[in-house]
Design a binder for these strands. Structure first.
Ligand SMILES: [Mn+2]
Ligand SMILES: [Mn+2]
Ligand SMILES: [Mn+2]
Ligand SMILES: [Mn+2]
Lengths: 219, 219
DNA sequence: TATTTAATTTAGCTTTGCCTAAAAATAGTT
DNA sequence: AACTATTTTTAGGCAAAGCTAAATTAAATA
């Protein structure tokens, strides 16, 4: 067993994503579901990753990344998000079309390639979905005071900075509503009944939409 | 067995490369050598590719591409050369550094990705080593009257258009001699003794170098 | 606490793609 | 034509990564 294969990288990435925000170790089932695989497969992979020292795994309890495992995960995420940026900003893909491609491109591990790509793209800080791009040294810088849009009170002004759900369907739904990263909007009214909001110049945004928009409130 | 995996694509590509220029089918040993693999592996893969209808294989005789196999090979070569162009022209890699990376990138099959990349790069006709980039429809256009530089007589002027050997070592050797695609040169003298040439402003080029340069003679 | 349910692991199978060693076929040489 | 050397194929193995089904452990419930 050499470095991290595509599979191993995807598992490490999944572990990273699933453990940020949640408490404690990641369950086998959650991992399997996230990767569209069977729990038995995830279980086997955890054993392998623990063996390699990238994961701490207590049987029947769950798994969490070791520092070295987290480092690999961050590298993969960096590659993923840089490629997504490239695909959208340079090749003109829509933001809902790039995830699957990046899911493949991210596994080409070559420090020089990624550093040159980063440079070529102007060292972007965020990917097309508003997620921060980890730096080459494995640090993640995100100083934005993000808030979920569903918390906004009537009269509030905010700028859209990211999405919680970045599935194709949701992103295309946002396209249909004219919602993009960077736009500023003002909540005119919140409806007690269903949590929806009337937004100046945008009509009604449902609670489902608001709960999946990350914003920074404007003064 | 679904589409062509990375391995299958590499074998089809090797078959294409080895059969252009040579007569008759490609031998198992040549194939294995080209891919740094064992004859037994190549033999097994030929059986598989024949099964899929991409290769004509007569036992103990050798293999050749069917039209559908050639089509796949050309697609892979198109992707390989487009990525090489991108790596050199956009990311600033040297021409001796891109082959291995392209060897991995070429296996990401996505028509939209490649068409957009092609577009983004300005639909280049040749890769950084002077090899023609197959079009999306599988045609290869190369109308250049290429000649090997070793055939040049004293007094001839020519422009360098490609290389026969595109190994890292040879390309770096050319760098050291100040030889690049596109430069024009004049042969002042050929030496009977060892086939070397004195080139105006460039000193002596050995026969080994000349035999690996593809040129177009200037009027 | 005993029992049932749910989650997790283990065991065993499959495919892909590589390998080595042995067998078979072709080619070359006396 | 017979023998030898080379090439090619076949047979049998291995590792990775997935699966299903069975066994095990933990959690929930009566
Ligand atoms: Mn993504
Ligand atoms: Mn991936
Ligand atoms: Mn190449
Ligand atoms: Mn390749």
């Amino acid at each position: 067993m050499q470095g991290a294969s595509s599979s191993r990288e995807d598992y490490l990435k999944a572990l990273y994503v699933l453990s940020t925000g949640a408490e404690g170790p990641v369950t086998t089932t959650a991992l399997a579901e996230h990767l569209s695989m069977r729990p038995a497969s995830a279980s086997g992979m955890m054993k392998q990753l623990a063996e390699a020292g990238w994961v701490e795994h207590e049987a029947y309890r769950g798994a969490s990344l070791t520092p070295s495992g987290e480092r690999i995960a961050l590298d993969v995420i960096r590659r993923h998000r840089l490629w997504e940026f490239f695909l959208v900003e340079r090749l003109g893909f829509a933001w809902d079309q790039v995830h699957e491609l990046a899911e493949r491109l991210e596994h080409i591990e070559d420090a020089e390639l990624i550093n040159r790509l980063d440079d070529y793209l102007g060292c972007p800080d965020f990917d097309p979905h508003g997620d921060p791009i980890p730096r080459a040294d494995g640090t993640v810088v995100d100083a934005r005071p993000l808030q979920v849009a569903s918390e906004l009170r009537p009269g509030a002004r905010a700028v859209i900075k990211g999405v919680v759900d970045s599935s194709d369907v949701f992103l295309r739904h946002l396209d249909a509503l004219g919602i993009r990263l960077g736009i500023e909007f003002k909540v005119v009214e919140r409806h007690e009944f269903d949590g929806s909001a009337r937004v100046e110049g945008h009509g009604i945004w449902t609670l489902g939409v608001l709960e999946n928009l990350l914003v920074v409130i404007q003064p």
